[in-house]
Nucleic acid binder design. Structure first.
Lengths: 111, 111
DNA sequence: AAAAGTGGTAACTAAATGGTAACTAAAGGC
DNA sequence: GCCTTTAGTTACCATTTAGTTACCACTTTT
């Protein structure tokens, strides 16, 4: 299809941009889980029981690469790893907060 | 870690809830595209050029089923269909707006 | 000895998502 | 006759993402 001189919205779409960072099935929940606390791997897994450890690891790695979370590894036995939000991750909190609000108003008290 | 009477976050997680409605790869962009205008199928497709017509159709159907958008079909030849946000769809605008804001601040003017 | 505790990895399978091509309808243009 | 327009549908295949199961490394506790 030929675009007759019309500029597509997508090219400059900020929503597309954020979705590339937090668009995964689990990423918003993981960030939401870390919104106010530093948490260990096992803690996150316990709070999101239906995610597998493999997928959780993958998603955490991607979030780390995108500079939204910080991973700190302590070389102890047994091992300990702590995850927390970076400044950039914290800057997402208005977005997560609006999602939370909407969910509370439109889903939670509807059933 | 033993959950000492602690309920998992997920069970009552409002973020999980909203993600079931708008968690798809394209849904936030489609809603964002309809945020202030009623649009025809072809218009939406033109504004989101990288989505195929088939997938756009599927996503629109799902949004319609979830009562976020309204589909009005005019039985003309050639066919005409108009999409717009329902009240529930409009209620998502703070979420989309925060996503847009974050995208503008953190991605668009960063390159 | 063996299990518990921690944060993973590897190999494999399943599910979700995305894509193309060909087809439909009725009227108008060449 | 054939092409164009519009908003799809159908069939089929490819790709991407997610899930399952088993296993490791290392120390302390049972």
């Amino acid at each position: 299809m030929v675009t007759k001189g019309k500029i597509s919205e997508e090219v400059k779409c900020p929503v597309t941009g954020i979705l590339q960072l937090i668009g995964g099935k689990w990423k918003p929940i993981i960030l939401y889980c870390l919104r106010s606390e530093t948490r260990r791997f096992g803690e996150i897994a316990a709070r999101i029981p239906s995610i597998s450890r493999k997928v959780l690891t993958e998603q955490l790695r991607e979030l780390e690469q995108d500079n939204l979370i910080l991973r700190v590894q302590f070389n102890e036995i047994p091992p300990r790893v702590e995850y927390s939000l970076t400044a950039m991750g914290k800057s997402l909190s208005p977005v997560l907060h609006e999602m939370e609000k909407w969910g509370l108003e439109n889903i939670m008290n509807k059933k």
